[in-house]
Nucleic acid binder design. Structure first.
Lengths: 136, 136
DNA sequence: CGTGTAGTCAACTGATTGGTTGAATAGCCG
DNA sequence: CGGCTATTCAACCAATCAGTTGACTACACG
């Protein structure tokens, strides 16, 4: 099941995988580490209290999600952060945020219109919006 | 195990939970739906081919992650999107992105310095950076 | 050539997850 | 009161996940 039936979600990019990959704190930490520069598996494994194999698996998850790319340098496999996926997430998040804000804007308009047209409840004629945008 | 040993990750906010919550396409879809306005459980459940209980569970996950808040209106439980968590994610993502860009900037500086100081390989004296920022 | 180093693959385990059914709670309405 | 509606709780199941151990591949170097 890649995508659910009745939905307003755009097709489905690897967003699932990206969010899932970044849901694990160890993985998020590795990504943080990788913003400082490429690293080998053993280098990445060093801070954690787990086997190299486990780290390798985490890396595979990140790679499958497209967060990371592993090249080859002799027996070493330098891990490189793929910056583009961040754009994918930011796009989703920002789209949601914009929709929320649009909704509040719409609501403000309605309330403002009511203020000026509704005969009752208007001592002053300044169209002060009641509802503020959520603290952002 | 809330957080891993050797780490440069800031304490640990509910980021785990937020990313995990948004890793599920159904849940992401519900959030998208909620940007259009609050909704009851049954309303939210309508588009999906699954029991109300399953939807209720998804909602619980979103709530525990702080993505959503459920108030009470008689026997109905209107679900409301909590916009602030988006900031949390955006903050993490943008911090990572800035670090990557800082790194590239640093690299550019080094290369530029080599251009002006290295006696070989310098026909012109304009410190043109070789490496561009990753396509954003 | 053999040995050490870097990494992956495979099989197993316990915990979590996404879904189910069935029963329980809570509040409106006749 | 009794029933309908909206929602949750509890137990269960199959699949996935994060971790382990053990065996394997790939390469450098002496």
């Amino acid at each position: 099941m890649t995508n659910q039936p009745g939905t307003l979600t755009p097709p489905n990019d690897g967003l699932d995988a990206v969010f899932a990959a970044l849901a694990d704190p160890t993985r998020r930490d590795m990504v943080a580490r990788l913003t400082e520069g490429d690293a080998t598996v053993t280098e990445l494994a060093e801070p954690y209290d787990m086997t190299i194999q486990a780290v390798s698996k985490h890396l595979k998850v990140l790679e499958d999600a497209g967060v990371v790319h592993r090249s080859r340098d002799a027996q070493r496999r330098p891990v490189h952060l793929e910056a583009e996926v961040f754009d994918l997430m930011t796009a989703w998040i920002e789209r949601a945020r914009r929709r929320i804000e649009a909704r509040y804007r719409r609501l403000d308009d309605v309330l403002a219109a009511m203020d000026t047209s509704d005969p009752a409840d208007q001592g002053t004629d300044d169209p002060q919006p009641r509802r503020k945008r959520p603290a952002s």
